[in-house]
Design a protein around this nucleic acid. Sequence first.
DNA 1: TGTACATCAGTGAACGCGCGTTCACTGATGTAC
DNA 2: TGTACATCAGTGAACGCGCGTTCACTGATGTAC
Lengths: 203, 203
Amino acid sequence: MYPVNIKLMNKKTYHHGNLEEALLTVGMKEAKASGFRNLGVTHLAKMVGVTPMAVYRHFPSGENLKAAISQQAREELARRMLEALENEEDVKRKFMATGREYIRFGLEEPGLFAVAFIDCDASPQREDNPSARAILHDAILDLCNEGLVKPAELESVANFAWSIVHGFAMLASGNNPFRPEISPSVIENLLERSWLGVTQFSK
Amino acid sequence: MYPVNIKLMNKKTYHHGNLEEALLTVGMKEAKASGFRNLGVTHLAKMVGVTPMAVYRHFPSGENLKAAISQQAREELARRMLEALENEEDVKRKFMATGREYIRFGLEEPGLFAVAFIDCDASPQREDNPSARAILHDAILDLCNEGLVKPAELESVANFAWSIVHGFAMLASGNNPFRPEISPSVIENLLERSWLGVTQFSK
DNA sequence: TGTACATCAGTGAACGCGCGTTCACTGATGTAC
DNA sequence: TGTACATCAGTGAACGCGCGTTCACTGATGTAC
């Protein structure tokens, strides 16, 4: 039973058992705590209790490991968006909830958020799953089905909505001189203005 | 005559003459070429032809130098926004031009754009001048004067507009799996949708 | 106008560190017969 | 079921490098008298 957990806990064997997963786990922990600052091969290997070279059994280079951790962070964002969706019935409320959660994630997890969109020399080995982009698309598809958005506008609405929440989250979560004021009402105002751009364009 | 230029050119004197400015200049060059990757004290000192220690006569730490270069990049963005403004008369067109130029800057100068909003441990020693935020505020103030935006909405409109162009520029200029399609029509669509959120909110 | 001297703005060598990556190696695991 | 052996997944020492920062120093500049 529970072979994975047993292997993860048994640190005395020569073989780690699940080093790839362990590296991603500890990478996420570091990302959460300090963003992109401590995602090097040497450091993460030490955290896991393993020689740096062992990392190369699982990732072709440090940059690939970083890309994999970045993907984990994006998938965590996507999972939270899915959770937020589940609490809503109405298609507009579902759509708004994805955006609200995106911003919330940026504010509550600035480290993970920064890592999720880090500029990295490597690309991930697989597609995001779950994918935040796919979740947004689905939410807009629901708007189409209700006649609130024309199907032909799906892409441009996605661009628009994504830009807003991404921009706000970026500006609000980082350390820059243009940081906006942050409050629930500021965020709701932003989302309501967005709704106008989403639904009123072809009217 | 021209003491600054003479000093900048005369590399054989013991004293550099204008090391602070030279560091910022070469920092901008590096930022333009490769983003935040080569903004360390040792590297920039070498580029200028000076000992690393000399840098500390002008900046308390490497992080402060980085913050100063980041500010230079933001001011460059602001200057380009001002140029774009000058070509327009109509207040709506002025407003739209600032956003269009913001995005253009992100796409044409991804290195400078990344550095402009780099997450840095230090803060700049002075206010941005020109300030991109102030330029945006002024453009919205013009909209207020024409009755297109209520004065009380100035801040929320600024938040909204800034988030959109910043988010789009970030997503489009970096290396991430959610990069949007980039074309003039995509950008114009984004700006027109934004205009609805700016002007239709309290109607 | 000349000179003494404080201050300014650099040098150059060195530090300890962590980085990514390489090498040759070895203990553990799994499989074929 | 036992064993031989290939393969897998680690070790451990080492590499060259650039990093930020420190130190004691010195040549150049500017100022007071």
